[in-house]
Amino acid sequence: MKHFLLAAALILSAPAVMACETVTIGDLTIEHAWSKATIGAGRPGVFYVEITNAGSVDDALIGIATPAAGMPMLHETVVQDGIASMPHAMSIPVPAGQNVQLSPGGYHGMLMGLTTALKEGDSFPVTLSFEKAGEVTVNVDVLSLRAEGPDCADAGQ
């Protein structure tokens, strides 16, 4: 955890960050990581991303960590019988050969205890922990509060 925080801090302090970055670990491709601007740091932020498993072994996203928030967690928005709630997701399956999206109205990273307000145009690193593939860090683009999807040339938005 300590060396992760150090690494994260180094990444955070890097002057130029590539937008719409794609990272890979093993058979997993992680791309289109985005977040929404927040009003102040008192309310939780959100984290969305797309994960593709090109391999033949099922994997699962089991946690996220970021220097941007004291308590990041995986959540799933569930609308059942007309009632929306967002329980904690213990893990998000990333089956072999499939593409999984954390996107509005479904799975999302809930960034509680923000260290600072997220401003449009900023970016921050999030480290994803996979059950089998291990840990990988991706830079997250902060978009407008009104954004409804990633703002990448290849994201089809």
């Binding site: 927040t38 967002m86 509005p104 409804e148």
Partner: peptide, 10 residues
């Protein structure tokens, strides 16, 4: 509510 509420308000 960072997920559902902003979508509708947007």
């Amino acid at each position: 509510c960072p997920d559902v509420c902003p979508t509708t308000l947007s």
